[in-house]
Design a protein around this nucleic acid. Structure first.
Lengths: 251, 251
DNA sequence: CGACCTGTTGAACTCCGTCAAGGCGTGTGG
DNA sequence: CCACACGCCTTGACGGAGTTCAACAGGTCG
């Protein structure tokens, strides 16, 4: 869930759709992004007909809420999104982070409503994929069906990898693993010569996502900093020696 | 993942296919089980053509291994199955439990191989659903496609519910929540007047699944026993007062 | 019978959550 | 412009929950 561990479509550059026209995704030549990979032009235009661009959402603005009836899947076009649910005791918890090219809302498939809120972390544009129409389109387009099945399988694997195995890790390892995931997505995005992981979410959000209290995360980051692995900033983390540390700490 | 929280198809009785003929599933009138819900007879027979019955697997016997190339989804016909993966440091961890009517192997969709081993917990029969053929069939059968999408969405929700939210719970709550899930599946299966939860897996497996050490689970079960909520046996747990305790402890 | 596996119990220690306080950046209002 | 409040993050001290280590009980299988 959330922070992607894949490599393929994760390099999608974020494109700022400043005009409300359909803008070109520099991977797929379409705003339908990664889901349209490998379609013929005709299939592509069918897909484009059902997709809508929505935005901009301002930081903290809600894209959909738990109570909303499930109508659409979403793809992040630019910006970033968190999803957060609520425990039976009332505490909120962050369930995923999504960046440009990521699809979200998959958890709601087969359900009547969403199970969590989706909130923009920064100025954000999204594409909506009306699900009923998408499913119909899939039944005429084996390639699209194949893509969607694969995305769902991938989502399950990601959840197992990050959430599932994260449970067995200690706080330091969780923090490091999280950074590793973000880092993989940010390859090539060097700010001023140094490799930076930008953090559009708060540290509190990260802590919640990792099932840690904010204090524990803060201490873990401090430890990593003391070891010379990272440098901790307010809205970013500077990467000094992530690779070897990762192999070292997470074995 | 694993322990199902749904209610609909969970009541599928386990059927012992003692003859290798196609045997009747008493919900779907077919060994294709829940996935074939709502298909026309012709669609049904297409589905049945690609499905194969395999078994019996003996306790501890492997149904598929991590290294195996992904070829098929599986449905538990009778008996029960655990899936277990391996952490980077080498420790094994149980990722799911599956009972009659449950589908497993979904995590492998879109991947070249399985990500974990599947092991029978007791004498077990399974149905194999060759995935490539299933996908092809889906593209001719919107209803089947719909079912499979829904199963995938459901799987994601289950994982989020049990694994995701379980992380924030304390040991006692995790144990209780796990029992609650099993109990819901076992409604109507009263052994000798008292409500029993049969445990085909070891306590160690359960502990691993809940991300606890076996000692902690043992102590948690003891606490629940002392409170008069359950009675702990070797391969079963007797339910005394689960409902109120659940509302009480998990709020 | 003894070897082995699973599960349970006790004691010591470790990690992390909780509580409390303070620093820093930002926005607001005087 | 400064004062102040507020949210976010950090740091320290403490305590509790859970892991680790060790020993043992009960069942199963050779």
């Amino acid at each position: 869930m959330g922070v992607s561990t894949r490599s393929g479509s994760s390099r999608l550059q974020s494109v700022n759709p400043s005009n409300k026209q359909q803008s070109e995704c520099n991977k797929c030549n379409s705003h339908s992004c990664c889901i349209g990979d490998g379609l013929t032009p005709e299939q592509f235009s069918s897909l484009e007909k059902i997709i809508h661009l929505r935005g901009p959402f301002q930081p903290g603005e809600t894209i959909f809420k738990m109570e909303d009836p499930f109508k659409s899947l979403y793809i992040v076009r630019s910006g970033s999104v968190k999803t957060e649910g609520i425990m039976s005791n009332g505490t909120q918890l962050v369930e995923g982070f999504y960046f440009a090219g990521d699809i979200f809302g998959l958890e709601a498939i087969g359900d009547s409503h969403y199970r969590h809120d989706a909130v923009a972390l920064e100025p954000t544009w999204v594409c909506t994929l009306p699900y009923a129409q998408l499913e119909t389109l899939c039944s005429f387009t084996p390639r699209l069906q194949h893509r969607l099945f694969n995305l769902l399988g991938q989502k399950i694997r990601q959840t197992n990898s990050i959430i599932g195995r994260g449970r067995y890790r200690k706080a330091d390892e969780r923090a490091l693993f999280f950074l590793e995931c973000l880092y993989k997505r940010n390859i090539g995005k060097k700010d001023g010569g140094r490799e930076n992981i930008r953090l559009p979410m708060t540290k509190g959000d990260i802590a919640s996502y990792l099932a840690l209290c904010p204090e524990s995360l803060s201490r873990s980051l401090r430890k990593l900093e003391d070891r010379g692995i990272i440098q901790n900033h307010k809205n970013a983390i500077e990467v000094l020696d992530l690779g070897t540390a990762f192999n070292d700490i997470c074995k």
